[in-house]
Design a protein around this nucleic acid. Sequence first.
RNA 1: GCCGCAGGCCGCCUUAUCGCUGCGCUAACGCGCGGAGGAAAGUCCGGACACCAUAGGGCAGCAUAGCGGGUAACGCCCGUCAUUCCGUGAAAGCGGGAGAGGACAAGUGCAACAGAAAGGAUGUACAGGUAAUGCUGUAGUGAAAUCAGGUAAACUCUAUGCGGUGAAAUGCCAUGUAUACCGGCAACUAAGAACUGCCCGUUCAAUGCCGGGGGGUAGGCAGAUAGACCCCUGCAGUAAUGCAGGGGCCAGAUAAAUGAUAAGGGUCCCGCAAGGGAUACAGAAUCCGGCUUACAGGCCUGCUUUUUAU
Length: 132
Amino acid sequence: MPQYMEQKKYTYPKEEKLKSRNTIDLMFSEGRSVSKYPLRLVYVPLPVTNESPIKVGVSVSKKHFKKAVDRNYFKRLLRETYRHNKHLLLENIPGNYAFMLMYQTKDRLSLEEINTKTIQLFEKFIIQLKQQ
RNA sequence: GCCGCAGGCCGCCUUAUCGCUGCGCUAACGCGCGGAGGAAAGUCCGGACACCAUAGGGCAGCAUAGCGGGUAACGCCCGUCAUUCCGUGAAAGCGGGAGAGGACAAGUGCAACAGAAAGGAUGUACAGGUAAUGCUGUAGUGAAAUCAGGUAAACUCUAUGCGGUGAAAUGCCAUGUAUACCGGCAACUAAGAACUGCCCGUUCAAUGCCGGGGGGUAGGCAGAUAGACCCCUGCAGUAAUGCAGGGGCCAGAUAAAUGAUAAGGGUCCCGCAAGGGAUACAGAAUCCGGCUUACAGGCCUGCUUUUUAU
Protein backbone atom coordinates (compact mmCIF):
# COMPACT_ATOMS: atom_id res chain seq x y z
CA MET A 1 0.00 0.00 0.00
CA PRO A 2 1.42 3.41 -0.90
CA GLN A 3 2.24 5.83 1.88
CA TYR A 4 -0.58 8.29 1.19
CA MET A 5 -3.26 5.67 1.45
CA GLU A 6 -2.52 5.20 5.11
CA GLN A 7 -3.03 8.83 5.89
CA LYS A 8 -6.43 9.39 4.40
CA LYS A 9 -9.86 8.15 5.38
CA TYR A 10 -11.48 6.24 2.57
CA THR A 11 -14.94 6.20 4.03
CA TYR A 12 -18.43 7.03 2.89
CA PRO A 13 -20.49 7.26 6.07
CA LYS A 14 -24.18 7.93 6.35
CA GLU A 15 -23.71 11.65 7.06
CA GLU A 16 -22.07 12.12 3.68
CA LYS A 17 -24.93 10.56 1.79
CA LEU A 18 -27.18 12.85 -0.11
CA LYS A 19 -30.69 11.95 0.95
CA SER A 20 -32.78 15.09 0.84
CA ARG A 21 -35.15 15.12 -2.07
CA ASN A 22 -35.31 18.92 -1.92
CA THR A 23 -31.55 19.32 -2.08
CA ILE A 24 -31.47 17.10 -5.13
CA ASP A 25 -34.22 19.12 -6.80
CA LEU A 26 -32.32 22.31 -5.97
CA MET A 27 -29.16 20.88 -7.46
CA PHE A 28 -30.76 19.99 -10.76
CA SER A 29 -32.61 23.29 -11.06
CA GLU A 30 -29.90 25.70 -9.90
CA GLY A 31 -26.70 23.69 -9.73
CA ARG A 32 -23.77 23.77 -12.10
CA SER A 33 -21.96 20.82 -13.60
CA VAL A 34 -18.73 19.56 -15.11
CA SER A 35 -18.31 16.58 -17.41
CA LYS A 36 -15.48 14.24 -18.22
CA TYR A 37 -17.09 11.71 -20.51
CA PRO A 38 -18.70 9.44 -19.55
CA LEU A 39 -18.92 10.92 -16.06
CA ARG A 40 -20.73 14.06 -14.99
CA LEU A 41 -20.64 15.93 -11.71
CA VAL A 42 -23.52 18.18 -10.68
CA TYR A 43 -22.96 20.41 -7.68
CA VAL A 44 -24.49 23.23 -5.65
CA PRO A 45 -23.26 25.19 -2.61
CA LEU A 46 -25.17 24.63 0.63
CA PRO A 47 -25.58 26.83 3.72
CA VAL A 48 -23.00 25.99 6.37
CA THR A 49 -24.40 23.79 9.12
CA ASN A 50 -23.14 21.45 11.82
CA GLU A 51 -23.53 18.51 9.51
CA SER A 52 -21.00 17.04 7.15
CA PRO A 53 -19.49 19.66 4.80
CA ILE A 54 -20.17 17.38 1.84
CA LYS A 55 -23.20 15.49 0.60
CA VAL A 56 -22.77 13.06 -2.24
CA GLY A 57 -25.11 10.87 -4.25
CA VAL A 58 -24.56 8.61 -7.23
CA SER A 59 -26.77 7.94 -10.20
CA VAL A 60 -26.97 5.51 -13.10
CA SER A 61 -29.74 6.04 -15.56
CA LYS A 62 -32.32 3.42 -16.35
CA LYS A 63 -31.92 4.57 -19.91
CA HIS A 64 -28.38 3.18 -20.05
CA PHE A 65 -28.87 0.05 -17.96
CA LYS A 66 -32.22 -1.62 -18.00
CA LYS A 67 -31.49 -4.20 -15.32
CA ALA A 68 -31.33 -3.29 -11.66
CA VAL A 69 -28.30 -5.53 -11.13
CA ASP A 70 -26.25 -3.51 -13.59
CA ARG A 71 -27.33 -0.19 -12.14
CA ASN A 72 -26.45 -1.37 -8.64
CA TYR A 73 -23.05 -2.54 -9.84
CA PHE A 74 -22.05 0.76 -11.41
CA LYS A 75 -23.41 2.76 -8.50
CA ARG A 76 -21.17 0.71 -6.25
CA LEU A 77 -18.20 1.42 -8.46
CA LEU A 78 -18.97 5.14 -8.39
CA ARG A 79 -19.16 5.08 -4.60
CA GLU A 80 -15.89 3.19 -4.54
CA THR A 81 -14.07 5.76 -6.65
CA TYR A 82 -15.61 8.62 -4.69
CA ARG A 83 -14.35 7.04 -1.50
CA HIS A 84 -10.82 6.83 -2.82
CA ASN A 85 -10.73 10.35 -4.24
CA LYS A 86 -12.94 12.40 -1.97
CA HIS A 87 -9.95 14.18 -0.41
CA LEU A 88 -9.60 16.08 -3.70
CA LEU A 89 -13.00 17.64 -3.05
CA LEU A 90 -12.70 18.11 0.71
CA GLU A 91 -9.37 19.96 0.43
CA ASN A 92 -10.64 22.44 -2.14
CA ILE A 93 -14.25 23.42 -1.48
CA PRO A 94 -14.69 26.75 0.34
CA GLY A 95 -17.99 25.88 2.05
CA ASN A 96 -20.59 23.15 2.19
CA TYR A 97 -21.45 21.49 -1.09
CA ALA A 98 -23.78 18.82 -2.46
CA PHE A 99 -22.68 16.61 -5.35
CA MET A 100 -24.26 14.10 -7.67
CA LEU A 101 -21.97 11.76 -9.55
CA MET A 102 -23.52 10.42 -12.72
CA TYR A 103 -22.59 7.58 -15.04
CA GLN A 104 -23.66 8.43 -18.55
CA THR A 105 -22.89 5.68 -20.98
CA LYS A 106 -24.00 2.22 -21.96
CA ASP A 107 -20.39 1.01 -22.03
CA ARG A 108 -19.22 -1.19 -19.20
CA LEU A 109 -16.04 0.49 -17.98
CA SER A 110 -13.72 -1.21 -15.52
CA LEU A 111 -13.10 0.12 -12.04
CA GLU A 112 -9.65 1.29 -13.11
CA GLU A 113 -11.04 3.31 -16.01
CA ILE A 114 -13.75 4.86 -13.88
CA ASN A 115 -11.21 5.73 -11.21
CA THR A 116 -8.99 7.56 -13.72
CA LYS A 117 -11.98 9.45 -15.10
CA THR A 118 -13.14 10.38 -11.61
CA ILE A 119 -9.79 11.93 -10.73
CA GLN A 120 -9.83 13.90 -13.98
CA LEU A 121 -13.39 14.97 -13.30
CA PHE A 122 -12.59 16.19 -9.79
CA GLU A 123 -9.56 18.14 -11.05
CA LYS A 124 -11.70 19.76 -13.71
CA PHE A 125 -14.21 20.72 -11.05
CA ILE A 126 -11.55 22.35 -8.89
CA ILE A 127 -10.34 24.43 -11.82
CA GLN A 128 -13.86 25.56 -12.60
CA LEU A 129 -14.45 26.43 -8.96
CA LYS A 130 -11.34 28.64 -8.81
CA GLN A 131 -12.33 30.56 -11.90
CA GLN A 132 -15.54 31.80 -10.31
C1' G B 1 -22.44 -47.73 -18.84
C1' C B 2 -24.65 -44.64 -22.80
C1' C B 3 -28.86 -42.03 -25.14
C1' G B 4 -33.87 -40.08 -24.64
C1' C B 5 -38.18 -38.61 -21.74
C1' A B 6 -40.58 -37.19 -17.04
C1' G B 7 -40.11 -35.28 -12.06
C1' G B 8 -37.25 -33.13 -8.04
C1' C B 9 -32.90 -30.56 -5.95
C1' C B 10 -28.40 -27.47 -5.79
C1' G B 11 -26.79 -23.27 -8.17
C1' C B 12 -19.31 -21.56 -6.44
C1' C B 13 -15.74 -21.61 -2.03
C1' U B 14 -11.50 -19.58 1.10
C1' U B 15 -8.14 -15.73 2.79
C1' A B 16 -6.34 -10.63 2.95
C1' U B 17 -6.99 -5.20 2.40
C1' C B 18 -10.36 -1.00 2.00
C1' G B 19 -15.69 -0.03 2.76
C1' C B 20 -21.50 -0.15 3.69
C1' U B 21 -25.72 -1.65 6.93
C1' G B 22 -28.81 -3.67 11.35
C1' C B 23 -28.42 -5.37 16.33
C1' G B 24 -25.64 -6.10 20.94
C1' C B 25 -21.65 -4.43 24.27
C1' U B 26 -18.60 0.06 25.57
C1' A B 27 -17.62 6.58 28.81
C1' A B 28 -15.19 6.55 24.14
C1' C B 29 -11.79 4.54 20.41
C1' G B 30 -13.71 0.33 18.89
C1' C B 31 -15.10 -5.01 19.23
C1' G B 32 -18.53 -9.15 18.31
C1' C B 33 -22.62 -11.37 15.60
C1' G B 34 -26.15 -11.11 11.38
C1' G B 35 -26.72 -9.11 6.18
C1' A B 36 -30.54 -11.00 -1.43
C1' G B 37 -33.37 -15.07 -4.62
C1' G B 38 -35.12 -19.67 -6.66
C1' A B 39 -36.92 -17.00 -9.30
C1' A B 40 -35.97 -11.21 -5.18
C1' A B 41 -38.39 -10.65 -12.09
C1' G B 42 -43.35 -10.26 -14.93
C1' U B 43 -47.24 -7.78 -11.64
C1' C B 44 -51.18 -12.40 -14.08
C1' C B 45 -54.59 -14.63 -9.99
C1' G B 46 -55.74 -15.47 -4.50
C1' G B 47 -55.37 -13.63 0.56
C1' A B 48 -53.61 -10.94 5.17
C1' C B 49 -53.50 -5.80 6.71
C1' A B 50 -55.25 -0.61 6.33
C1' C B 51 -58.53 3.34 4.87
C1' C B 52 -63.01 4.84 2.06
C1' A B 53 -67.95 3.26 0.63
C1' U B 54 -72.11 0.18 2.02
C1' A B 55 -80.65 -0.79 4.06
C1' G B 56 -82.30 -4.26 0.38
C1' G B 57 -82.76 -5.60 -4.79
C1' G B 58 -81.70 -5.28 -10.08
C1' C B 59 -78.72 -4.14 -14.63
C1' A B 60 -73.92 -3.93 -16.75
C1' G B 61 -68.87 -5.84 -16.45
C1' C B 62 -65.16 -9.57 -15.18
C1' A B 63 -63.98 -14.56 -13.75
C1' U B 64 -65.03 -19.80 -13.13
C1' A B 65 -67.52 -24.47 -15.24
C1' G B 66 -67.48 -33.39 -15.10
C1' C B 67 -67.13 -35.55 -10.07
C1' G B 68 -64.55 -35.75 -5.28
C1' G B 69 -60.87 -33.77 -2.04
C1' G B 70 -56.98 -30.00 -0.06
C1' U B 71 -56.47 -24.87 1.56
C1' A B 72 -56.98 -18.67 5.01
C1' A B 73 -58.23 -18.30 -0.17
C1' C B 74 -57.66 -19.05 -5.39
C1' G B 75 -58.48 -18.97 -11.84
C1' C B 76 -53.73 -22.93 -7.61
C1' C B 77 -52.70 -28.12 -6.01
C1' C B 78 -54.07 -33.57 -5.53
C1' G B 79 -57.09 -37.75 -6.96
C1' U B 80 -60.52 -39.74 -10.38
C1' C B 81 -64.04 -40.54 -14.63
C1' A B 82 -65.99 -39.52 -19.65
C1' U B 83 -63.37 -38.46 -24.05
C1' U B 84 -58.94 -38.72 -26.87
C1' C B 85 -53.68 -39.67 -28.77
C1' C B 86 -49.29 -43.06 -29.05
C1' G B 87 -47.11 -48.04 -28.49
C1' U B 88 -48.28 -53.29 -28.35
C1' G B 89 -51.89 -57.07 -29.58
C1' A B 90 -56.19 -61.00 -33.88
C1' A B 91 -59.13 -59.14 -29.96
C1' A B 92 -60.01 -58.42 -24.93
C1' G B 93 -56.53 -56.02 -22.54
C1' C B 94 -51.85 -53.86 -20.92
C1' G B 95 -48.19 -49.56 -20.70
C1' G B 96 -47.56 -44.24 -21.38
C1' G B 97 -49.41 -39.15 -22.56
C1' A B 98 -53.25 -35.27 -23.11
C1' G B 99 -57.72 -34.10 -20.51
C1' A B 100 -61.07 -25.23 -20.11
C1' G B 101 -65.39 -31.23 -20.03
C1' G B 102 -72.70 -26.97 -17.92
C1' A B 103 -76.55 -25.89 -21.91
C1' C B 104 -77.29 -25.99 -29.30
C1' A B 105 -85.37 -29.16 -26.25
C1' A B 106 -84.74 -20.22 -26.35
C1' G B 107 -82.72 -16.94 -30.25
C1' U B 108 -78.64 -15.45 -33.75
C1' G B 109 -74.37 -17.00 -36.51
C1' C B 110 -70.93 -20.55 -38.95
C1' A B 111 -69.79 -25.28 -41.85
C1' A B 112 -64.35 -27.43 -46.83
C1' C B 113 -65.32 -31.58 -50.36
C1' A B 114 -69.22 -34.51 -52.22
C1' G B 115 -74.37 -33.72 -53.13
C1' A B 116 -80.52 -31.70 -56.37
C1' A B 117 -80.66 -29.84 -51.53
C1' A B 118 -76.75 -28.36 -45.30
C1' G B 119 -81.47 -25.70 -42.21
C1' G B 120 -88.20 -21.02 -43.45
C1' A B 121 -84.60 -27.80 -46.98
C1' U B 122 -86.81 -31.98 -50.39
C1' G B 123 -85.10 -32.89 -56.85
C1' U B 124 -84.89 -37.53 -59.71
C1' A B 125 -86.02 -42.94 -60.18
C1' C B 126 -88.91 -46.92 -58.16
C1' A B 127 -92.76 -48.47 -54.76
C1' G B 128 -96.89 -47.34 -51.47
C1' G B 129 -100.78 -43.90 -50.07
C1' U B 130 -104.44 -39.48 -50.36
C1' A B 131 -109.95 -35.53 -51.86
C1' A B 132 -105.08 -33.02 -52.58
C1' U B 133 -99.80 -32.17 -51.26
C1' G B 134 -92.47 -35.04 -50.40
C1' C B 135 -97.69 -37.51 -47.37
C1' U B 136 -94.51 -42.33 -46.54
C1' G B 137 -90.45 -45.82 -47.74
C1' U B 138 -86.11 -47.27 -50.61
C1' A B 139 -81.98 -45.96 -53.92
C1' G B 140 -77.98 -42.08 -54.25
C1' U B 141 -73.85 -37.93 -51.67
C1' G B 142 -71.88 -37.18 -46.98
C1' A B 143 -69.54 -37.36 -40.42
C1' A B 144 -74.64 -35.65 -40.64
C1' A B 145 -80.36 -35.34 -45.10
C1' U B 146 -86.67 -33.27 -40.12
C1' C B 147 -82.72 -36.67 -36.88
C1' A B 148 -85.42 -32.31 -30.96
C1' G B 149 -78.65 -32.99 -36.86
C1' G B 150 -73.12 -30.58 -35.71
C1' U B 151 -70.62 -26.38 -33.46
C1' A B 152 -70.63 -22.38 -27.23
C1' A B 153 -61.31 -21.63 -26.02
C1' A B 154 -68.96 -18.51 -31.81
C1' C B 155 -72.30 -14.61 -29.87
C1' U B 156 -75.52 -16.25 -26.26
C1' C B 157 -78.11 -18.71 -22.05
C1' U B 158 -77.74 -21.00 -17.08
C1' A B 159 -75.39 -21.56 -12.26
C1' U B 160 -71.82 -19.66 -8.80
C1' G B 161 -68.43 -15.82 -7.13
C1' C B 162 -66.73 -10.68 -7.15
C1' G B 163 -67.71 -2.98 -3.54
C1' G B 164 -63.33 0.46 -4.34
C1' U B 165 -58.28 2.05 -3.46
C1' G B 166 -53.08 0.06 -2.37
C1' A B 167 -47.60 0.77 2.18
C1' A B 168 -46.71 6.97 -2.10
C1' A B 169 -52.39 2.82 2.30
C1' U B 170 -52.87 4.43 7.30
C1' G B 171 -51.65 6.37 12.39
C1' C B 172 -48.43 9.49 15.46
C1' C B 173 -44.50 13.32 16.83
C1' A B 174 -42.91 17.92 15.07
C1' U B 175 -37.64 22.37 14.50
C1' G B 176 -37.67 27.06 11.72
C1' U B 177 -40.75 30.73 9.12
C1' A B 178 -45.52 32.81 8.59
C1' U B 179 -50.15 32.53 11.23
C1' A B 180 -56.34 31.63 13.06
C1' C B 181 -57.38 32.21 18.16
C1' C B 182 -56.40 33.38 23.63
C1' G B 183 -53.78 35.99 27.70
C1' G B 184 -50.37 39.76 29.61
C1' C B 185 -47.55 44.19 29.14
C1' A B 186 -46.17 48.62 26.60
C1' A B 187 -47.25 52.76 23.72
C1' C B 188 -50.33 56.35 21.62
C1' U B 189 -53.05 59.45 18.29
C1' A B 190 -53.28 61.23 12.37
C1' A B 191 -57.47 58.24 10.81
C1' G B 192 -61.83 53.95 12.42
C1' A B 193 -66.38 51.77 15.48
C1' A B 194 -69.80 52.04 19.90
C1' C B 195 -71.91 55.02 24.09
C1' U B 196 -73.67 60.11 21.45
C1' G B 197 -75.61 65.11 17.26
C1' C B 198 -70.62 67.64 18.98
C1' C B 199 -66.29 67.78 22.62
C1' C B 200 -63.98 65.12 26.60
C1' G B 201 -63.83 60.39 28.56
C1' U B 202 -64.30 55.03 28.52
C1' U B 203 -64.32 50.52 25.82
C1' C B 204 -63.24 47.94 21.34
C1' A B 205 -60.27 47.65 17.12
C1' A B 206 -55.35 48.59 15.40
C1' U B 207 -49.53 48.61 16.46
C1' G B 208 -45.13 46.48 19.02
C1' C B 209 -43.07 42.90 22.43
C1' C B 210 -43.60 38.45 25.48
C1' G B 211 -46.15 33.90 26.60
C1' G B 212 -49.77 30.14 25.36
C1' G B 213 -51.82 27.61 21.21
C1' G B 214 -54.62 24.83 16.83
C1' G B 215 -53.72 23.29 12.02
C1' G B 216 -49.31 22.08 9.53
C1' U B 217 -44.10 22.28 5.79
C1' A B 218 -38.91 20.11 6.15
C1' G B 219 -37.74 15.97 8.84
C1' G B 220 -38.58 11.80 12.10
C1' C B 221 -41.24 7.44 14.33
C1' A B 222 -44.81 3.54 13.89
C1' G B 223 -46.81 0.44 9.88
C1' A B 224 -41.89 -2.97 9.03
C1' U B 225 -39.98 -7.85 9.62
C1' A B 226 -41.65 -14.18 14.58
C1' G B 227 -44.43 -15.78 10.31
C1' A B 228 -51.00 -19.47 6.98
C1' C B 229 -42.22 -19.30 9.20
C1' C B 230 -38.10 -23.06 8.75
C1' C B 231 -35.88 -28.04 10.03
C1' C B 232 -36.36 -33.12 12.03
C1' U B 233 -39.38 -37.30 13.70
C1' G B 234 -43.98 -39.94 14.18
C1' C B 235 -49.12 -40.79 12.88
C1' A B 236 -53.53 -40.36 9.28
C1' G B 237 -54.38 -40.16 3.93
C1' U B 238 -53.52 -43.24 -2.93
C1' A B 239 -52.07 -38.01 -2.92
C1' A B 240 -52.41 -32.69 -2.30
C1' U B 241 -52.38 -32.02 2.82
C1' G B 242 -53.53 -32.31 8.01
C1' C B 243 -52.41 -33.40 13.20
C1' A B 244 -48.88 -34.28 17.28
C1' G B 245 -43.94 -33.89 19.53
C1' G B 246 -38.99 -31.78 19.54
C1' G B 247 -35.56 -28.09 17.85
C1' G B 248 -34.44 -23.22 15.48
C1' C B 249 -34.52 -17.50 14.58
C1' C B 250 -33.43 -16.70 9.02
C1' A B 251 -31.98 -9.08 5.59
C1' G B 252 -34.71 -4.86 7.18
C1' A B 253 -32.44 -0.61 3.67
C1' U B 254 -35.38 4.12 2.57
C1' A B 255 -31.74 8.65 -3.68
C1' A B 256 -32.30 2.79 -0.82
C1' A B 257 -26.85 -1.40 2.78
C1' U B 258 -25.79 -6.66 1.59
C1' G B 259 -19.90 -4.44 -1.92
C1' A B 260 -14.96 -3.56 -4.48
C1' U B 261 -10.05 -5.25 -5.37
C1' A B 262 -6.15 -8.95 -5.13
C1' A B 263 -4.44 -13.94 -4.48
C1' G B 264 -5.56 -19.06 -4.21
C1' G B 265 -8.90 -23.20 -4.88
C1' G B 266 -13.42 -25.99 -6.85
C1' U B 267 -16.43 -27.45 -11.23
C1' C B 268 -16.99 -27.69 -16.58
C1' C B 269 -15.07 -27.04 -21.81
C1' C B 270 -10.80 -26.96 -25.49
C1' G B 271 -5.72 -28.98 -25.99
C1' C B 272 -1.00 -34.71 -26.60
C1' A B 273 1.11 -31.08 -23.31
C1' A B 274 2.54 -26.28 -21.51
C1' G B 275 -1.59 -23.62 -21.14
C1' G B 276 -6.17 -21.07 -22.48
C1' G B 277 -11.35 -20.22 -21.72
C1' A B 278 -16.15 -20.46 -19.13
C1' U B 279 -18.47 -19.97 -14.01
C1' A B 280 -25.62 -18.63 -15.65
C1' C B 281 -30.35 -16.00 -14.96
C1' A B 282 -30.56 -12.16 -12.03
C1' G B 283 -30.70 -7.55 -6.84
C1' A B 284 -35.27 -7.72 -1.37
C1' A B 285 -38.76 -2.51 -1.01
C1' U B 286 -45.59 -4.22 3.66
C1' C B 287 -45.99 -9.57 4.08
C1' C B 288 -47.70 -14.49 2.60
C1' G B 289 -49.92 -18.71 -1.13
C1' G B 290 -49.77 -19.78 -6.39
C1' C B 291 -49.04 -19.11 -11.78
C1' U B 292 -45.81 -17.54 -15.80
C1' U B 293 -41.12 -16.38 -17.77
C1' A B 294 -35.22 -16.44 -17.50
C1' C B 295 -31.11 -19.71 -16.12
C1' A B 296 -23.72 -21.59 -17.07
C1' G B 297 -22.90 -25.95 -14.81
C1' G B 298 -23.88 -30.08 -11.59
C1' C B 299 -26.60 -33.92 -8.64
C1' C B 300 -30.67 -37.44 -7.51
C1' U B 301 -35.05 -40.63 -8.64
C1' G B 302 -38.21 -43.34 -12.11
C1' C B 303 -39.25 -45.32 -16.99
C1' U B 304 -38.23 -46.78 -22.30
C1' U B 305 -34.64 -48.40 -26.09
C1' U B 306 -29.82 -50.34 -27.11
C1' U B 307 -24.85 -52.49 -25.95
C1' U B 308 -21.57 -55.41 -22.80
C1' A B 309 -20.85 -58.84 -18.74
C1' U B 310 -22.94 -62.46 -15.36
